[in-house]
Amino acid sequence: MKNVLGLFSRTTILNVLLLSFSSTLFADESSVLSAVRAALPQFEVDRAELHEGSGLYIVDLKNGPTLHVTQDGKYFVAGDLFRINKTNLENETEKAKLSKVEVLPESDMIVYKANNEKAHITVFTDVDCGYCRMLHKEVPILNEAGVTVRYLAYPRAGVGSDVYTKMVSVWCSDNPKEWLSKAKLGASVPENKCVNPVADQFKLGNEVGVRGTPSIVLENGVFLPGYLPAAELIKRLGL
């Protein structure tokens, strides 16, 4: 087991692991989670979610690979799960992770609402990021086209950094939309403190594969790493 676990950091679609848990049959999420925790006690297990298409449970490990576990709790595969279509491959593991973004409450975001909303995008942003500032200047164009822009915090320097403190101050301000716009123009933000989602949103960004900002998630679960001009985004949304 120890030698096998050492391969996790090199897990790819071509190099997956297939291990047996036990001969005991399981039939629900809590039992599958218990089996994973017993087999891999060195990992923190977040949750399990049944993927209906494959019949496997998707189990997220903190600082470890994603597992796909059989419903009987006897086997798992470490690595991404792909769905084979006639023309392409769809990464089902990535889609499952990105679904966490779509279910977040807008009350935790900073939202620039379109009056005639036809679609929305969710953007992991950093107030000191140059490309984030370019995208933000085009928010009025996106709103005019019917696209609502929903911001999540992703301070690239990490929790506890200066930009993290700045983004907490924005989220905790009396007018987050106004102060986010000011911060993206380089204005100094008065320090504010409150119960806020900035650290959780940063963690979620890491979980879904954010490696830089802006990172854009479309409502259909498509992940777009990096800046795209408003016209291209509008086109991608089919508007």
Rank of each mutant, 00 (worst) to 15 (best):
L204G: 07
V69L: 11
A157I: 04
V217C: 05
A38P: 00
N3T: 15
G238K: 12
K100C: 01
M109F: 08
V36N: 07
K2Y: 11
Y112W: 13
P225I: 11
T165N: 15
C129A: 05
V159A: 08
T93V: 09
A199E: 12
G158T: 02
V139G: 01
F124V: 08
Y164D: 05
G55W: 03
F82N: 01
P190Y: 07
D128F: 04
T66D: 12
G212L: 09
V36T: 03
V198P: 04
V168D: 09
G130D: 02
T93S: 13
L7I: 04
V69W: 00
T70W: 11
G221T: 12
V159M: 10
K235C: 06
V59A: 08
K118F: 06
D174P: 08
W179Y: 11
R236S: 11
P155T: 00
T87S: 14
E232H: 11
K100T: 10
T70R: 10
N91R: 13
T66M: 07
E92K: 05
K113G: 00
A35L: 03
G73N: 06
N85R: 15
A96L: 14
E49Y: 04
V16E: 06
Y131K: 06
N175T: 03
S99E: 12
G238I: 13
Y151P: 07
I121S: 13
F76I: 03
P65H: 05
F43H: 00
Y151N: 00
D60N: 15
K2Q: 15
D108V: 05
M134R: 14
N88G: 01
G212M: 14
S34D: 01
F202K: 06
R10A: 07
T93K: 06
K86Q: 07
E191A: 13
G64A: 08
I121K: 14
V4F: 04
P197Y: 01
Y164G: 01
Y154H: 00
Y151D: 01
I58V: 09
M109W: 11
A35T: 02
K184T: 10
I58C: 02
L56V: 04
K137M: 06
T24P: 02
K86E: 14
F21S: 12
F76T: 00
V77K: 10
I84C: 05
K184M: 15
S22I: 09
L218V: 13
L185G: 10
A157E: 15
E191D: 02
F26Y: 02
E94T: 10
A114S: 07
T12K: 13
G238F: 09
E106P: 00
V127N: 06
S173F: 01
V159H: 07
K137S: 05
R150E: 14
V101Q: 09
V170R: 08
S23L: 11
L204T: 05
I110S: 05
G73M: 08
K182L: 10
